[in-house]
């Protein structure tokens, strides 16, 4: 299995915006039935990377490969046609439209011909209910507006839709960042679900606590570069956390806090950071 070419691979990709080097020598891969987590703080280049993977931007250097074949997307439609579906957090669904209308939006099943060509509502509702059930969500009423679902379920509608319409690689852009603990848990469950259906998942997040439990590979981004790439066995959640926070920088911050602060609460925070750092070292 490991000999087969990865589903999606990014090789030495650079991206410039004018003179700004947004991405530099990015390498990552995702295999079928695997979750690759891309971790990075704000401004690390995550959204530029998503846009390259989803066909919005083209890389200035390096290449994107699907099944080992180099591809060049001329737009998001190209990427979708090759089975790469991107689920953007805030662009996933339309709240006022019903679940089934959202599920089939842009790919509505029809029956009849000519002026009698119409939506196959029964079929659309049945398929939607089945696909959502596969995700472990029981939709009570196909006509209920997506806005009445919880935040996690709304993401799930988008994920289930992408899976149903043949996505082989799912790119999830910060699917948990606006959600509470329980809702995040629900989304993580769907990520695992999609993985067990044999899809490759690229899970973009800044939260190592969400990434670690579901991830198989971890790619850490900072300032447009990959500064760490691990298989799950090679790393721990504490290591990911401290790398995300930027180890050395955090240490400097701890000292700064200690020297500046007089309040006991801040002192306490500083000593906590100190002990956590020494525990990781």
């Amino acid at each position: 299995m490991s000999e087969a070419a990865p589903l999606l691979e990014v090789r030495n990709v650079d991206k410039y915006f004018g003179s700004v080097n947004a991405l530099r020598e990015i390498n990552l891969q995702v295999n079928a039935g695997e979750v690759t987590c891309v971790l990075g703080d704000n401004g690390a280049g995550k959204s530029t990377l998503i846009k390259i993977l989803s066909g919005v931007h083209q890389p200035d250097k390096g290449e994107v490969l699907i099944d080992g074949q180099p591809v060049r997307f001329s737009g998001p439609r190209d990427a979708r046609a090759l089975g790469i579906a991107t689920v953007f957090q805030d662009l996933a669904t339309i709240p006022l439209m019903s679940v089934w209308r959202n599920f089939f939006l842009g790919n509505e099943p029809t029956k009849g011909v000519g002026p009698l060509r119409r939506l196959d509502v029964q079929r659309a509702q049945r398929i939607m209910l089945e696909e959502m059930a596969k995700m472990g969500i029981e939709v009570r009423e196909p006509n209920q507006p997506v806005g009445t679902l919880s935040g996690g379920e709304r993401q799930a509608v988008a994920i289930a839709r992408a899976v149903y319409f043949g996505a082989r690689v799912l790119i999830l852009d910060e699917p948990t960042s606006a959600l509470g603990v329980r809702q995040s848990g629900i989304v993580l469950k769907y990520i695992v679900q999609a993985r067990s259906m044999g899809r490759g998942v690229i899970f973009i997040t800044h939260n190592p606590h969400h990434a670690y439990p579901v991830g198989d590979r971890f790619v850490l981004l900072r300032r447009g570069r990959v500064f760490g790439s691990y298989m799950k066995a090679e790393t721990t959640i504490d290591q990911l956390t401290s790398m995300m926070a930027g180890g050395a920088e955090l240490e400097a911050l701890t000292h700064e806090l200690q020297s500046l602060a007089q309040e006991p609460e801040v002192q306490e925070l500083a000593s906590e950071l100190q002990s956590e750092l020494s525990a990781n070292a």
């Binding site: 953007f88 662009l91 669904t93 006022l96 209308r101 939006l105 842009g106 509505e108």
Partner: peptide, 28 residues
């Protein structure tokens, strides 16, 4: 009423007004 409730075009009308960016994102 037929167009709005029972055709693909009707679905696109709701989507265009509901969130045109999300709608474009799924190919409407």
């Amino acid at each position: 009423t037929w167009v709005l409730m029972r055709t693909r075009f009707g679905n696109w009308i709701f989507a265009a007004g509901g969130d045109q960016y999300a709608a474009r994102n799924v190919g409407v």
